[in-house]
Computed example of a mutant assay.
Amino acid sequence: MIKQALLGEFLHEAESTRKLLKAIPDSALDWKPSDVNWTTAQLASHIAEVYNWFESTFNQDVFDMGTYAYDKGDISKAENIVAKFEENVSKAQKEIENSDESAYFNEWKMEMKGNILFPPMPKVQVIRSFLYNHLYHHRGELVVYLRSTGNKVPGLYGPTADDRF
């Protein structure tokens, strides 16, 4: 039952993420709002990467960022970021579909070199916060990036100012 709820939300929200990533023009990839922020390409790549974390989150009780490695590929073209997203979202969907609901309440934590980065909590709570809500947060940032560079934003939860009624 929990799995079906997680999968339904995942599929719906992955489509919204797809629409948003496909709205990024190459001309906006190098833009960033300040010196301390990521570029649009880095932010979009991170959004695609979060889908790569589903395997570790669903199948391990400890996510060791000290040993985690990820090949983001060439992020100089928006289509490459979308392709990486598609690769990762497909794997993430399979992880949810193949997951064992009896493990959803196992304690999960994130560490790096023995230091706890993400406090221990039930895996299902991590799925909702570390995976899902984390993605939504960064999508919101990406909407602001697109608007700030004069680009249109697709409707994620209904029409946007760019849509004609």
Rank of each mutant, 00 (worst) to 15 (best):
K19A: 12
V82G: 08
E9P: 01
I24H: 01
F130P: 04
W53M: 10
K94P: 06
P154H: 06
V126N: 00
E111W: 03
W31F: 07
T17Q: 02
H138A: 08
D100M: 02
P120T: 01
K72E: 13
I116Y: 02
W108Q: 03
Q42W: 08
D30S: 10
T160E: 11
L146Q: 06
P33R: 05
E97D: 05
M1C: 05
R164G: 03
K91I: 10
I75V: 11
Q4E: 14
R164N: 08
E87R: 05
L135W: 06
F63C: 01
E95I: 07
T40Q: 01
D163L: 10
E111F: 01
F105K: 11
A48L: 12
Y145G: 04
L43F: 03
V126R: 00
L43S: 12
P154T: 09
N80K: 15
S90R: 13
Q125C: 02
L6M: 09
A48Q: 03
A48E: 01
E49Y: 09
T40H: 04
A92P: 05
K113V: 05
N106L: 03
A69P: 05
H46Q: 13
R18P: 09
L43P: 09
D26Y: 13
K19P: 00
N115P: 03
D162A: 14
N98R: 09
S148V: 04
V144W: 12
S34D: 13
E55H: 15
S16T: 05
K19L: 15
K123A: 00
Y145M: 03
K72G: 12
V143L: 09
P122W: 01
E49R: 14
I2C: 00
A41F: 04
G158Y: 02
T149M: 08
L21T: 08
W31V: 11
K109I: 02
I127M: 08
V62K: 10
S99P: 04
T160V: 12
W53F: 00
N133D: 13
G150M: 07
G155A: 10
Q125V: 04
E49I: 10
K72N: 09
D74G: 06
A14P: 00
E111R: 01
S102T: 14
A78V: 07
T149S: 08
L131G: 01
M112I: 13
T17W: 02
K94A: 15
R147T: 06
E107R: 02
T57W: 02
L146S: 10
V62W: 11
E95V: 11
P119R: 12
T149V: 14
E13K: 14
I96L: 15
Y132N: 06
Q42S: 10
T67M: 12
A161D: 11
Y136A: 09
S99D: 02
A41H: 04
V124S: 02
N115F: 04
V143P: 06
S99L: 08
V36W: 11
M1S: 15
E15V: 13
G8K: 15
K19I: 08
V82Y: 07
A161M: 12
M65Q: 15
T40M: 06
K84N: 07
P122Q: 05
K19C: 08
E87K: 15
T17S: 07
E13D: 04
M110T: 09
A78Y: 06
N59E: 08
K84G: 00
A44S: 12
F63Y: 12
K22I: 02
A41E: 00
K32L: 07
Q4C: 01
K123H: 00
M121P: 00
K77N: 13
D35T: 14
D100F: 05
I2E: 14
K84T: 14
V153N: 04
I127D: 01
